[in-house]
Design a protein around this nucleic acid. Structure first.
Lengths: 184, 184
DNA sequence: GTCTATAATTCGATAGAC
DNA sequence: GTCTATCGAATTATAGAC
């Protein structure tokens, strides 16, 4: 399934063939339907949900054990930029491409991406609330950060520059400072 | 070609079949290769570039004839939210889905999306500079706004809520005020 | 139970009739 | 020159041999 996750992230859902996935995984074709009886859609849904859980951990890694909110934001964006550069602008958000593809075409998969984004927003809200920010402001800040990150991924992958990620980082720092200002 | 633009925007590049396009356009299949001899890739490239030019006009519409930068930002995001709601969360950015799909798989199309984003950034930089913001700050603000808008489109289409667009609007207003503060 | 071979369909592209 | 009919090569999914 890791092979499917990588290909879906880079090439999208409709752009990735099942044969391509089993070839990369080094598995025989028949075994795919043994583990995923409902075929491509089931594989896609499980890839979306498991990738979402993996990225959920990044909130804890960057914000769970620090009292420096701004530093955490900057570190998160810097890490994303580094990954992007290392993978030749291929590995950004694991579900963004699929999310746009299925938003108007495949309701079960759209629901899966919505559940992932909702989980991210809830997790971010909880983590940011630790910094003394109110629930509502923490939720808004989370959506702002995720939104900036996702948008920056689009521009960065297309332009093959990390400039949009740097700008998004600065914008998110601005939003974080504004949220912190509501505390004191 | 308008039919192709709509389907590419909603279903993506790999997710849209040529037969689907000619069916929606009410055109015979053969005529497609009369107008686009290089087939799907040529059609995709022309759709990307023409859609990009259409959206370029939005910068002028929202910021060309006003001295209220913040009001223009809010109007632009409000308009995007209204379109999204009216189309049942189908019509957002005309090239974002395709941009993510082709970023690592099709260099000519990736280049086309990069040219469009570059044109948007240049146009925004010029328009925002009119408000007295320095060149560098105007460019940063443009990237910040486009980035927030694109990211908000992803979350809004997936979650089927305009909340991310509202948050992105507020974030962009914050960025605009920060840019204006460098003037006075 | 694992996997190969194949079915059924759809893809992008083209040849050839009018 | 316009379009219909069809091509070969994909696609997803399954049947059936081992």
């Amino acid at each position: 399934m890791a092979a499917g996750a990588e290909l879906f992230r880079r090439n999208g859902y409709t752009g990735t063939g099942l044969k391509q996935i089993v070839a990369q995984a080094g598995a025989p074709f028949g075994s795919l339907y043994h583990f995923f009886p409902r075929g491509k859609e089931q594989l896609g849904e499980e890839v979306i949900r498991s990738s979402g859980l993996m990225y959920l951990q990044l909130f804890d890694i960057h914000f769970g054990h620090t009292d420096d909110l701004v530093g955490g934001v900057e570190a998160a964006f810097a890490g994303a930029a580094e990954t992007l550069r290392e993978t030749d602008y291929a590995d950004a958000c694991p579900i963004a491409t699929v999310a746009l593809e299925v938003a108007s075409t495949n309701e079960p998969l759209r629901k899966a991406t919505a559940d992932v984004f909702t989980a991210w927003i809830d997790a971010g809200t909880a983590v940011f609330a630790r910094f003394g920010i109110g629930e509502e402001a923490a939720r808004t800040l989370t959506i702002s950060v995720v939104t900036s990150l996702e948008g920056a991924f689009i521009l960065s992958r297309s332009l093959r520059t990390t400039e949009p990620l740097a700008v998004a980082s600065a914008t998110s720092v601005l939003a974080a400072r504004a949220a912190l200002a509501t505390v004191s």
